[in-house]
Design a binder for these strands. Structure first.
Lengths: 245, 245
DNA sequence: ATTTATTATTGGCTAAATGCCACTTAATTG
DNA sequence: CAATTAAGTGGCATTTAGCCAATAATAAAT
């Protein structure tokens, strides 16, 4: 049929094929008032105009050198910053999730402290932080409730064996705040001594002075911020008892 | 611009947009002669005609109800069976991985025992099991060496805290064989007593009689096969010391 | 100035899990 | 019947985790 790879490529045209839609959606999490929040945007265009959805959109083949770059671009458009952690959660594709037809979306999860984003996000008229529990009860666009649940579950799972929870905290923070963040993300109460024994403070945190705990009462606490590269750390033993299945 | 969602959809045509290619590739692993092997196929068409690649291809929008179904279809086409474990590893997309243009592929990993596939695969002329180490040294199609490395790494990681290694073994198998499989996948030597204490035999395996160990010498060993649902089991503590970073 | 309340940090004991190695058991081979 | 091979178990020292209480350092109240 074709005489060479070059000849084949000359005749190739993607528009001769049945191709699915491809998008990237980003679940951006932070901690606000001790509760996990997620950034949502109100859709300004069809389909699902007016509904709340995850920040996301299509690949820009000129601008985006890879999928990760697409996710990073969406993240920056809505928060103004580069998150300290961004990872792919999963990719979903089926015939029904988008009224325009067979559609594939690659779901990313970003973790970010609240403070440095607050001003920028306040200026983005269609974007808003929602408590995750509340967001899941809304009538969201597409299958985004499902996407949020999957990203939330990934975050919960990784809170068990990584230091990722530190990336939703405003630095500097105390070890007690860090423990409370683990407890919020895992949904369990942890024992103070065990937590401090297990969390590798020296390796993953940098001490940046001392300060009063929240509420301004009690003994002065050591303050920390995350060290570089801590998002790749994996604990040998996991936090939180956790049911096996 | 549009007066309603219906109006919008009437005018929507995906071919007016710059869309990437979307494919699904499957890294199918088994254990053969104590070594991890992967199923490769020789490409019969351009691009990269004649090179070895992972089994994979495009979504069939009529046949495949979702991405997982596409992966399952590719798996069955080459092995004739439904693997006891199939999961998505990651999704890669960039402008350079395919000479036809911006391309996205969703990588799946399947685990399968060798024996039930042997006859079928022997009849598929373009398919062959390769030892993973050897396969990685070939000049493979596209970025498939990278895909294999990522699937291999996911398998190695999960061998540390799941029962997945049992799915590459021909049943029935002995606990010693299972331990050796963990050792091969993890790349470390495990202590017999610790392995047997930690692996939840009663929950995850079903005893199916006794038999001589491999080689036909020594005390008779208990024989097992995997129980249903064991692929969702997660160990609280991981196997193999493992460097943290 | 002293006491009380509050929170951080550390000590110490018990129980559970792991690493290590040797022992016992049950088969084949010569 | 002894030697060999491999499965399965016992036992102890070490490490880790759970629990709770003691001590330290601050603000607020008296």
């Amino acid at each position: 049929m074709y005489t060479s790879e070059k000849d084949y490529l000359k005749h190739y045209n993607i528009h001769n094929y049945d191709v699915p839609l491809v998008s990237v959606d980003v679940a951006i999490f932070t901690l606000l008032d001790g509760k996990l929040h997620i950034l949502m945007v109100e859709r300004g265009d069809y389909p699902h105009k007016g509904r709340w959805s995850l920040p996301g959109g299509f690949i820009n083949q000129q601008q985006d050198k890879d999928l990760h770059a697409t996710a990073l671009r969406k993240l920056k458009e809505k928060t103004g910053v580069k998150a300290p952690h961004l990872e792919q959660v999963t990719t979903l594709g089926n015939a029904n999730r988008d009224p325009r037809g067979w559609s594939v979306t690659s779901l990313y999860m970003a973790l970010i402290p609240y403070a440095p984003t607050a001003e920028f996000i306040a200026a983005v008229v269609d974007a808003r932080w929602w408590a995750v529990d509340i967001a899941l009860k809304q009538s969201l666009a597409f299958d985004h409730a499902d996407l949020i649940a999957q990203a939330r579950e990934r975050l919960r799972a990784k809170a068990g064996y990584t230091a990722l929870p530190m990336y939703v905290l405003n630095a500097p923070f105390t070890l007690t705040q860090l423990q409370q963040t683990y407890e919020e993300l895992l949904g369990v109460v942890l024992e103070k001594k065990s937590f401090r024994r297990k969390f590798p403070v020296d390796e993953l945190l940098e001490e940046v002075g001392e300060g009063l705990p929240e509420g301004g009462r009690g003994r002065i606490a050591a303050l920390y911020r995350p060290r570089k590269g801590g998002d790749r750390y994996i604990f040998l033993r996991s936090f939180g008892a956790g049911e096996d299945f």
